[in-house]
Design a protein around this nucleic acid. Sequence first.
DNA 1: ATAGTGCTTTACGTTTACGTCAACGTCAAG
DNA 2: CTTGACGTTGACGTAAACGTAAAGCACTAT
Lengths: 140, 140
Amino acid sequence: MTSDTSTARRSSRTGETWTIAQVAEAFDVTHRTVRHYEDLGLISPERRGTQRVYHRRDRTRLGLILRGKRLGFPLEEIRTIIDLFDAPRGRRTQLEYVLDQIDERRTDLEQRLRDVQDAIAELGEFERRCRDDLGRLDHV
Amino acid sequence: MTSDTSTARRSSRTGETWTIAQVAEAFDVTHRTVRHYEDLGLISPERRGTQRVYHRRDRTRLGLILRGKRLGFPLEEIRTIIDLFDAPRGRRTQLEYVLDQIDERRTDLEQRLRDVQDAIAELGEFERRCRDDLGRLDHV
DNA sequence: ATAGTGCTTTACGTTTACGTCAACGTCAAG
DNA sequence: CTTGACGTTGACGTAAACGTAAAGCACTAT
C-alpha cells in the first residue's frame, strides 16, 4: 500500500513516468477526472501504444488545474491560463499579447485575494463576538 | 437611467427597500439568479402581497453569496456559512458548535489564501521572464 | 378601456464537471 | 491458457447553477 518503487516508477531516459492510476491517487482524484481534463485539452500525456504515460510536466499541469479549481475558475478558463505558460513568445506581438493576458489574470486574482482576506477578517470578527458570548456564559 | 430616487427607494419605517430588478442590477446579476438563491433558501425577502421586497439585510446576504461564489464555494455550502452568522448562540453547546464551524471555514479559507498568493507569485515570475524576452528583442 | 411595464410562478432547456456502467484490449502470473 | 489486474473507449446519467420561454396578475398612463 505504501510506495512500491518497482511499480511506482517506470524507467525512461526522460525521467520518471506514471500511470493514470498513480497520478489519480497522487492528486486524490479519480482516473475519470484525469481523462476528462485530457478530453478538454488541459493535459496531453504521452501514449505508449494505447496506454497513457504521464510525465512530470503532466503532474505540474494537473496541480495547476486543481488549484485553479479551488479558486473557482471554470476548466475552460484554466485551459487558456495554463496554455499561456506554454504559448510561443518569439515575436513581439505574441509577447505583448501574453503580457496583456497576464495583466488580466492578475486583476482577477487580486480580486480573489481581497475576497479571501475580507472573508477571513469577517470570520475573525465573528469568532471574537462568539467568544465574548461564551465568556459571558462563564461569567454567570 | 441614473438613480431616480422616486422609484429607487420606497419609504418604510424599517428603512430603504428595493425591488428584485433593483437588487439584480445593483449586483450585476439577473432576477432569475436572485430568485434561484431564494429557492435554495439563501435569501428570504419580505413579501408585500405577491411582490418581493428586499431590505438591506438581503443585500448584505447577496454580497456574501457572490463573494462566496467568486471563491468557488458551492451555493449549498454558502448557505450553511451565512446561516451560521444568524444561528442561535444562546446555549453553550450551540456556541461551541458555531466556533467549531468557524474553525473549519477558516482552514478552508487559508488554503484558498495560499492558492491565490501562490498563483499571483507564479504569474509575477512568469511576467518577469516575458519582460526579459521583450528586453532581448529590443536589445537586438 | 386598453396598452404598457414590471413582477409573478411554472416548467423545461443548457452548460459544466464529472460519475457510472458496459464492453473490450493487454500483459504477467499461476 | 485462462484468470486477474489494470487500462482503454464510448455512451448515458446526474447534480449544480442558472437560462429561457410561457402565461398570467397588478398598477399606471393614455
